[in-house]
């Protein structure tokens, strides 16, 4: 039974900000993301909700990143690590603090380098440029401490990568259902699934149901 895949990407993702001036400088003036929507809302309701401005920037593809600015709200934590939404003490490993991020897609390396130029000319220069397995990315943190990535594909994704992703997830679910999951156990379980299911796999008969990429 296949569930029809009817969603159409990110409508918006929303974050709080305590510095709307820097946020607008970063997204509108440095990156050139148009302001496409905003809501001026008087506070109401049972929780003493403050008055707020909810404002949106176009991140391409009609998708949007949005912010809440609450009048009179003071920062909710005093940690130096993390972002304005969530702070972390020294006991939290750095890789964990740096895990959550928004990645914005660009078409090619020229466009990636164009955004690199815009950031490098600003108060928020690129912190890393990395070629991953099949994508190349640049990273910075916005004025609120949120990590923002720009990324481009170095080649199209192949259908067999969809098969591999599905075998990985099935192996992962099997391994985490048992005590003490480990990478070694996952690779052993995945080898079993490869032997069971990959031999008969054909392009176009992918298990990544609803994925148009797998139908080619």
């Amino acid at each position: 039974m296949t569930l029809e895949h009817k969603v159409r990407g990110v409508d918006h993702t929303a974050f709080p900000t305590f510095d709307p001036a820097a946020t607008v400088r970063f997204y509108r003036d440095v990156l050139g993301f148009p302001v496409v929507h905003s809501i001026c809302a008087a506070g109401w309701g049972p929780e003493n909700h403050p008055d707020f401005i909810h404002f949106f920037f176009d991140i391409g593809n009609d998708d949007r990143i949005a912010f809440f600015y609450y009048f009179g709200l003071e920062p909710v934590h005093a940690h130096e690590r993390g972002d304005v939404y969530a702070g972390f003490g020294p006991e939290v490993p750095e890789f964990f603090v740096r895990s959550r991020h928004l990645a914005i897609h660009v078409d090619d390396q020229d466009d990636l380098l164009e955004y690199r130029r815009r950031l490098d000319d600003s108060a928020w220069p690129v912190e890393m440029q990395i070629q991953h397995e099949t994508i190349e990315s640049i990273y910075t943190h916005d004025p609120n401490g949120y990590m923002v990535e720009f990324t481009r594909a170095m080649r199209p994704v192949t259908p067999q990568e969809d098969l591999d992703a599905n075998l990985t997830i099935d192996a992962l679910l099997d391994v985490v259902a048992e005590p003490e999951p480990s990478f070694g156990k996952l690779l052993a379980r995945k080898a079993e699934l490869i032997v069971e299911r990959a031999a008969d796999w054909e392009v176009g008969a992918s298990e990544a149901t609803g994925n148009a990429r797998a139908q080619v």
Partner: peptide
């Protein structure tokens, strides 16, 4: 192989261990 590729190239291991 560059590092990102090298450290993610293994899909499965049978009859042994890394």
């Amino acid at each position: 192989c560059r590092h990102a590729v090298w450290y993610s190239c293994v899909a499965g291991v049978a009859g042994g261990r890394i």
